[in-house]
């Protein structure tokens, strides 16, 4: 109570500045009292509940119901949708594909991002310009990037496909995109890597620039090589920034959808069908809203579990 009341009763003549602040009435004093924060926090809490908790609760409720095409109505089905989760082969396949996609994307984007950040930190020619250009891929909507790469990877007229064929990596019968789908996962990974490696670059570069110079100089004085300095001094000091960047991308990658939707529709067969795409298919193509809700909740739980495991395994401290 004290802060509000004190502010309200300050005598401007005594402070010599500001206008006269009218003393708060008793009712206002009670309402705005910091002893009762719930009252003035209520609107924002209600808003958060509405936009954050309500959809989640609705989704959970929906997971116990299912649309019946025969009746044209949504009917309660108990735990049937959750039981189906345990026997659905495509869920297991989608989990496997998601794991492959997330691991590959994370590893490559991190490695490339770190390398480029270290390079930029050394201050090469026009590094400011390159940093600005690096932001461009991130502002392209993912669907647009996917369409762009679908053209670039087209076996007959795509520039990327042309070079890969020229170098003997792929051929016209088994191109990057199409054919039997041998390269389907790399094909959808390429736009992801193109678009999100700069995210790692920016975060890690900011981290590198903020590092204290004393430990680096001390290691050099002690005779450490550049690699030893990087491995034993720079990288450990950079760990909090790496943790943030990896965590953000990890959670984001678990929801990957756009590239798959545009470029392969989960195919050929189910080769690129990740969990989020499978959930979309169930919800909006086959109109199984209940089962789609179950899959949505599974993705959420997966993100929470994976993020917490990551934090514990890598002993991330903020």
């Amino acid at each position: 109570m004290a802060n509000v009341n004190r502010a309200a009763t300050v005598d401007p003549r005594a402070t010599g500045r500001g206008s006269v602040v009218a003393p708060a009435h008793g009712l206002t004093r009670n309402v705005l009292s910091s002893d009762r924060p719930w009252l003035w926090l209520a609107p924002i809490v209600a808003l958060l509940l509405f936009i954050g908790i309500y959809p989640l609760a609705y989704n959970l409720w929906n997971s116990f119901r299912e649309f019946s095409p025969m009746l044209g109505t949504v009917e309660p089905v108990g735990l049937a949708n959750w039981a189906r989760l345990l026997t659905d082969v495509r869920v297991r396949e989608a989990l496997g594909t998601t794991a492959v996609y997330v691991s590959a994307a994370l590893l490559i984007e991190f490695a490339l991002g770190l390398a480029i950040a270290v390079l930029f930190n050394a201050g090469p020619w026009a590094s400011g310009l390159w940093q600005s250009l690096l932001i461009l891929p991130m502002v392209v909507p993912p669907t647009v990037a996917a369409v762009m790469f679908k053209v670039l990877e087209n076996a007959d007229y795509g520039a990327l496909a042309y070079y890969l064929q020229s170098w003997g990596i792929t051929d016209k019968v088994e191109p990057l995109l199409g054919g039997t789908g041998r390269y389907a996962i790399p094909a959808v990974l390429i736009p992801d890597i193109w678009q999100w490696t700069p995210f790692f670059v920016l975060i890690l570069l900011a981290g590198l620039k903020a590092l204290p110079t004393d430990p680096l100089e001390a290691s050099r004085v002690d005779g450490a090589s550049a690699w030893q300095t990087f491995w034993h001094v720079t990288l450990p000091m950079l760990r909090p920034m790496i943790a943030i960047a990896v965590l953000f991308r990890l959670v984001d990658l678990l929801k990957v959808f756009d590239y798959i939707f545009v470029m392969t529709s989960g195919g050929p067969g189910t080769r690129t069908e990740v969990l989020s795409f499978y959930a979309y298919q169930r919800s909006f193509t086959t109109i199984e809203w209940g089962y789609g809700s179950v899959l949505g909740i599974v993705i959420l739980l997966l993100a929470i579990v994976v993020a917490n495991v990551y934090l514990r395994v890598f002993k991330v401290a903020w």
Binding site: P69, G269, T270, Q281, T285, I287
Partner: peptide
């Protein structure tokens, strides 16, 4: 039949996708 949208897209088109790519 009422289930046709699901059958056509989610079963036939997916499994045919596997078949036509050597699955």
């Amino acid at each position: 039949l009422p289930q046709w949208p699901l059958i056509a897209t989610d079963i036939i088109a997916v499994e045919l996708g596997k078949l036509t790519t050597g699955g």
